[in-house]
């Protein structure tokens, strides 16, 4: 366990000592806070626009941070041969992968905490109300970030950063629109196509399960089973991705 923690803390340290980290978190702050200005020049419910733009900005920059950091996580270790220094010690490959995952999870968590904290404070001062439902939105966003972290880690373990970027971004985007499958399902005619589409639907990450932004912004109540189901789905998906990454990484020759 100590070795996993050591690798995780080192991964976190690497991320926060990188200028891109501050750039992305800084942009997150900037756009989240600029929602005030946007709400002022928009017709309609200003508080709603404020939340919508702020959440959107935090969402976008958190995901960007996780993808840009995640796609290099393992590839860079191999390219720079720092991996040899780690795996030549009494460290198993599983410990290395888990350390990397938890390190990026920590980075994503702390940066999200910082952006969300500042935004909630700003929102409370601006609207005069404490917006507790937003906390649930940030919690589910964090789980979505963990899935994207695990995806980036998986691709980074066997391919180049460019391909990892393309795969991770593609799956993230597909995951956001995967719900449309239920819309066009009646149009699928043959059992083969229906089965194939169903398999793809079940296999790909359904990130829309974590998107409760609309409900939170308009104040629509969320059912506890929906939230728990999303969290359970996320946990299972992360474990499956990490298992696959470990399987592939154990077979790699350096």
């Amino acid at each position: 366990m100590r070795r996993i923690i050591a690798i995780a803390l080192n991964t976190y340290r690497e991320a926060v000592r990188n200028r891109i980290f501050y750039l992305l978190v800084g942009f997150g702050f900037f756009f989240a806070l600029s929602s005030r200005f946007i709400s002022m020049v928009t017709v309609g419910d200003q508080a709603r626009v404020l939340k919508d733009v702020g959440l959107g900005a935090i969402h976008f920059f958190s995901i960007t941070l996780v993808i840009f950091t995640g796609i290099n996580l393992i590839y860079q270790e191999i390219e720079r041969r720092t991996l040899f220094n780690i795996l030549s010690k009494p460290v198993s490959r599983s410990e290395f992968i888990l350390g990397k995952f938890f390190g990026l999870a920590l980075t994503a968590g702390l940066s999200l905490l910082a952006m969300a904290g500042v935004f909630l404070l700003f929102l409370t001062i601006t609207t005069g109300r404490v917006e507790t439902p937003l906390l649930l939105s940030f919690l589910l966003l964090y789980e979505e970030l963990l899935i994207i972290t695990a995806l980036a880690l998986l691709f980074s373990s066997f391919t180049t950063p460019i391909l990892s970027f393309l795969f991770t971004v593609s799956l993230t985007l597909i995951g956001r629109v995967l719900w449309t499958y239920n819309e066009f399902r009646p149009l699928l005619r043959t059992p083969l196509v229906r089965g194939l589409c169903r398999a793809i639907y079940l296999l790909l990450p359904n990130l829309d399960k974590f998107n409760i932004q609309d409900a939170v912004v308009v104040g629509r109540p969320l059912s506890t089973p929906t939230v728990l189901l999303a969290m359970g789905y996320g946990a299972v998906y992360i474990i499956a991705l990490l298992t696959l990454t470990l399987f592939l990484f154990r077979r790699r020759q350096f």
Binding site: R13, E14, R81, T82, S88
Partner: peptide, 13 residues
């Protein structure tokens, strides 16, 4: 104890 050829370590440390 292992020393690799032309070692490269985490340069941010």
């Amino acid at each position: 104890g292992f020393l690799p050829e032309n070692p490269y370590f985490y340069d941010y440390l």
